Amino acid sequence: MTYLAKVIAGGKVVIPAGWRRELGIKDGDSVIFDRDDAGAILVKTHEQVVREVQALFRPFGDPASSIVDELIKERREEQRREGAAAGDRLAS
């Protein structure tokens, strides 16, 4: 659906109430303004931008795996190997 709105003092434009309800935009929320390649103005919610960024990074890693968890696992394995090597030296 297309809406017509006027720009009032200070560059303010009212987002139609139906769209605000549909998008979950409430008083005090922040919205992000962007432009597409054709120069059209896009208004996005914070949640929309977060989803877009997550989609951009999705190919670079499995969200179920944690780099921190992998690092902790590697460090524990190193400690186990170091402990075993120290025990071997003490037994000699």
Rank of each mutant, 00 (worst) to 15 (best):
K44P: 03
D62M: 04
L23G: 01
A40G: 01
T45P: 04
D34K: 13
I72F: 13
A84H: 04
I8P: 00
D88F: 01
S30R: 13
W19H: 14
L71P: 01
G39Q: 08
E78M: 12
Q79F: 15
D69P: 00
G39V: 06
A91R: 15
I25N: 10
V49M: 15
E22Q: 09
E52H: 09
V50I: 14
L56W: 13
A85W: 06
K73C: 07
A5R: 15
S66C: 13
G24H: 06
I15H: 03
R58L: 14
V7C: 07
L23Q: 10
F57H: 07
L56Y: 14
L71C: 06
E22Y: 11
G18T: 04
E78S: 06
G83S: 04
K73D: 12
Y3D: 08
Q79T: 05
V43F: 10
I15L: 15
G87N: 11
S30Y: 10
A9W: 00
R81Q: 10
G10E: 06
V43S: 06
V53L: 11
I41C: 08
G83N: 10
Y3P: 01
S30I: 05
A55R: 10
P63F: 03
A40D: 12
R58D: 11
V68S: 10
K73L: 13
V14K: 08
T45G: 04
A91M: 07
S65L: 15
G18R: 13
V7E: 10
W19A: 09
D88V: 01
V53D: 00
G87T: 03
I41D: 05
R58W: 00
S92F: 04
G61K: 03
P16A: 15
P16K: 11
S30E: 07
G24L: 09
K6W: 00
D69W: 01
G39L: 04
L42M: 11
H46V: 11
V31W: 03
R81D: 04
L4K: 11
V49Q: 03
E70C: 02
R20I: 01
G11N: 04
P59E: 03
L42H: 10
A86S: 02
G11Q: 01
R75F: 14
P16S: 11
V49K: 04
E70V: 05
K26Q: 12
L4H: 08
Y3L: 02
S66A: 13
S92L: 09
G24E: 03
A84M: 09
R21S: 13
D34C: 09
R21D: 11
